[in-house]
Amino acid sequence: MGIIKAKNLIYNYIKRDEEEKVEEVNEAVKDVSLDIEAGQFVAVLGHNGSGKSTLAKHMNALLLPSEGTVWIGGMDTKDDDSLLEVRRTAGMVFQNPDNQIIASVVEEDVGFGPENMGVPTDEIWRRVDECLKAVGMTAYRRSSPDRLSGGQKQRVAIAGVMAMEPKCIVLDEPTAMLDPNGRREVIRTVRELNKKKGITVILITHYMEEVIHADRIYVMDEGEIAMEGTPEEIFGRVDELKALRLDVPQVTELAHGLRKKGVPLSPCILDVEELVGELVGIRKQRTAQ
């Protein structure tokens, strides 16, 4: 079993009227099964309202399945006794940078999780030092979060989760409210944590260019997993992605357009060097003929 596993997960948002009678049932997640191996970088893509955030909240026991089961590190999230253990195995970073920083000083915020877990003072300091360094925010440790940019705030939030020493970190649209520079900062940080520290990463987003380096991609639509595979497999299906309200990076779109016009390019091109290399090669062949 992988670090995160879901089997036939169903989640219904139930809207009740004043008399507690069920007025409307909204199936946010319908029958999702997945198995994520430790150490992987996994991306969950999907348009707004596709159910991806609801799925994410199950990985931290913030929501419990209506039907089916979710296991985090082998623990069933429905088991009350392992609640805190589940939350420190899979840490979570949210969308709005302002609404997840609790303390008024950066370093104190990073120490918040360990404080809650009852970690001894000296150990808290060691973890705070290490995690601030890992996200490159040591210089700001005594700053007020209000003075930081959006990207910096999210890095502090990531450090705050890292200080709990989780095996896995779930990021629920961490870049949706950031500018392009902030987005790059956050993604670079997350990729480094994945590579250097071997932390399992689950990145939820609708920005395609953030997931081209993922090991595996799940595409959600209407509460279900609509597509699944490596970036090369997923990005090769440009038209399908567009039908799911998504988009591909310009380089992929350009290659896709050229292929349609008969240029013999590989089915899925994800970066500029790849496209340039192939086009130069094609031209050499043509001129040689």
Partner: peptide, 17 residues
């Protein structure tokens, strides 16, 4: 993207593609 596609095709067409 449209302009880029056109420009690249233009180069390739001149070469005989």
């Amino acid at each position: 993207v449209e302009e880029a596609e056109e420009a690249i095709l233009c180069t390739l067409n001149m070469d005989g593609v």
